[in-house]
Amino acid sequence: MHLNHDPAAPPAEAIAFDDFLKVDIRVGTIIQVEPFPEARKPSLKLWIDFGAGLGVKKSSAQIAALYEGELLLGRQVAAVVNFPPRQIGKMLSEVLTLGFADEQGRVVLFSPDRPVPDGSRLF
């Protein structure tokens, strides 16, 4: 599947509301960040705390073009938590951290505009 990052692109194919409910998008707090120089695109390794229900999950995020590791600590981000884990280089990425492409195609993280409890689900 190819994702279209063009903001002028038409919407994707319509889905049923039940299909949307199958995608489990949660918020968590970044508690650890490491460089990921082995990745093909500028990436960072993230450890995200999703609270008592899910715990800490790892994610490879193509965000190194705009973000520095230490500045991300304590930041809340949104992620899909119910995809199967994916091997990315030597790292097993357990969640898909969400973002939007800016004008240059760099990933801008998607996060709530106010603090919410870790593990909160998007609805």
Rank of each mutant, 00 (worst) to 15 (best):
Lys45Cys: 02
Ala52Gln: 15
Glu34Ala: 03
Arg40Leu: 15
Ser60Cys: 15
Gln62Val: 09
Lys57Trp: 05
Phe50Gly: 04
Phe36Glu: 11
Ile63His: 02
Pro37Ala: 06
Val56Ala: 09
Val56Gln: 14
Ser59Gly: 14
Val56Phe: 10
Gln62Met: 14
Glu34Arg: 01
Phe36Pro: 01
Glu70Val: 04
Ser43Gln: 12
Leu66Glu: 08
Gly55Met: 10
Ala65Gln: 12
Tyr67Ala: 04
Gly55Ala: 09
Phe50Cys: 05
Trp47Met: 04
Pro42Leu: 10
Ile63Pro: 03
Ser60Arg: 04
Gly53Tyr: 03
Ile63Gly: 03
Pro35Ser: 13
Gly51Pro: 11
Lys57Tyr: 06
Glu68Met: 04
Phe50Val: 08
Gly55Cys: 09
Gln62Phe: 14
Ala65Cys: 12
Glu70Phe: 01
Lys58Thr: 15
Gly53Ala: 15
Lys45Asp: 03
Lys41Gly: 01
Leu46Asp: 07
Ser43Trp: 12
Ser43Pro: 13
Leu46Gln: 06
Ile63Trp: 01
Ser43Phe: 11
Gly69Thr: 04
Ala64Glu: 12
Lys41Ile: 06
Asp49Tyr: 01
Pro35Cys: 05
Glu70Ala: 10
Pro42Ser: 10
Gly53Leu: 11
Trp47Lys: 04
Ala65Gly: 02
Glu68His: 06
Glu70Pro: 01
Ala39Lys: 01
Ala52Phe: 14
Leu54His: 13
Asp49Leu: 02
Gly51Asn: 10
Gln62Ile: 11
Glu70Leu: 05
Ser59Trp: 09
Lys45Thr: 00
Ser60Asn: 11
Ile63Cys: 05
Leu46Thr: 03
Pro35Arg: 09
Ile63Met: 05
Ala65Ser: 13
Ala39Arg: 02
Gly69Ala: 12
Ile48Arg: 01
Ala61Glu: 10
Lys57Val: 08
Val56Cys: 12
Val56His: 09
Gly69Asn: 03
Ser59Val: 08
Gly55Asp: 11
Ala61Gly: 08
Glu70Ser: 11
Tyr67Pro: 05
Ala61Thr: 07
Ile63Ala: 03
Ile63Gln: 02
Pro37Val: 10
Tyr67Asn: 04
Lys58Val: 15
Glu34Cys: 00
Glu34Ile: 00
Arg40Gly: 04
Ile48Cys: 08
Gly51Phe: 10
Gln62Thr: 12
Pro37Cys: 07
Pro35His: 10
Ile63Asp: 05
Ile48Ser: 06
Trp47Ile: 02
Leu44Gly: 01
Asp49Gly: 02
Leu54Ala: 08
Tyr67Cys: 06
Gly69Glu: 10
Lys41Asn: 07
Ala39Leu: 01
Arg40Cys: 10
Pro35Asp: 15
Arg40Thr: 14
Leu46Arg: 02
Pro42Asp: 12
Pro42Phe: 11
Ser59Asp: 11
Gly51Leu: 10
Ser43Lys: 10
Ser43Glu: 13
Leu66His: 06
Ala64Val: 11
Ala65Asn: 13
Ser59Asn: 13
Pro42Trp: 08
Val56Arg: 14
Phe36Lys: 00
Lys58Glu: 15
Ala39Met: 03
Ala39Gly: 00
Leu46Phe: 04
Lys57Ser: 06
Glu34Trp: 00
Gly55Lys: 05
